[in-house]
Nucleic acid binder design. Structure first.
Lengths: 166, 166
DNA sequence: CTCATATGTATATAGCGTATACTAACTGTT
DNA sequence: AACAGTTAGTATACGCTATATACATATGAG
């Protein structure tokens, strides 16, 4: 529903109707609307597939970044919620751990991996959310593609350098 | 009102009461609630003072980044709105132009300055919004200060390299 | 057979943004 | 000084929102 008509169109009554039940019936399954939205976010996180661990870490990170961006494009109204929820759900951990594993393979010291992951995910999220939320609405698609590539290479450099430190 | 009790506490009726008028009176001054929120965002942008052009560009950019972060801390509930509105208001341009001027002084080619600005502002915004919106709520303040410094030095490197290109 | 548990409905409430219509005050022109 | 237009306010009402409370039914285990 949020994808079709925007996040505001996702109402308890509307969802209930879609399911053929009363609005109050939903409260047997979610505590309140915030809880429902948490579930939606969780769903979102399961969507972009984690790249297989066989492929090299560079490709793994790059493909993850691209997948996140595609996922954001698919769910432009839901994605901004990601910034507002703590990244502690089981699905969020899953994605984050995959990144940290790749970083360690890249030579980033274990204690620094989490920090690099935080920075990288923040930059990526900030960009794709800006993109889908309309902050860049006056820019051409190609321009944004270029920007995203620049961001990726910037982060690649970050990872590389963090991998050299000691 | 948003600062005191959260963005949801900023209601038309509540604001009207605070001003000693009827809710409908507000509609003589703003088109609707979205317009009101746009005004709040605009107000936010006027708040962090732009650094004086006399000081060196490095300091100017650094102090701007720090000011943005402090401003976010002062208005944690309002700041996330920044990502959702296009950066085309007069005040938004003001801040952006200041950055671009500094970048050009840093040697970044004129046509690349806008792109670097976009990336930098996205990363900074992504970080501070994550911070105030609660995505990092389980991290110590000191940890986040370190992260922010790392982000700043990453962006400094970006600027430096963009300044070497031709 | 019974009873707890899970899942639904019915009804009600307070608060939200805002459309419409009316009114009073100020302002600039003649 | 009188008038007319604009501006800023009020009064009232409406439909939609999330959700509290109370009641009903269906299922499955002992």
């Amino acid at each position: 529903m949020a994808d079709e008509q925007g996040i505001d169109a996702l109402t308890m009554a509307g969802l209930a109707e879609r399911l053929g039940v009363t609005a109050m019936a939903l409260y047997r399954h979610v505590a309140n609307k915030a809880d429902l939205l948490d579930g939606v976010v969780e769903l979102l996180l399961t969507e972009f597939s984690l790249p297989p661990p066989e492929i090299p870490w560079q490709e793994r990170l790059a493909s993850l970044a691209v997948n996140i961006r595609l996922s954001a494009r698919r769910h432009p109204d839901v994605f901004p919620l990601l910034l507002q929820r703590p990244a502690t759900t089981v699905e969020a951990r899953r994605a984050r751990d995959a990144v940290c594993v790749a970083l360690v393979e890249a030579g980033v010291p274990g204690d620094r991996a989490a920090q690099v992951e935080r920075l990288a995910s923040t930059a990526i999220l900030g960009f794709v959310i800006s993109e889908v939320a309309g902050r860049f609405r006056n820019h051409a698609r190609k321009q944004l593609d270029d920007d995203f590539e620049m961001l990726q290479s910037l982060l690649a450099r970050l990872v590389h350098e963090a991998g050299q430190d000691r």
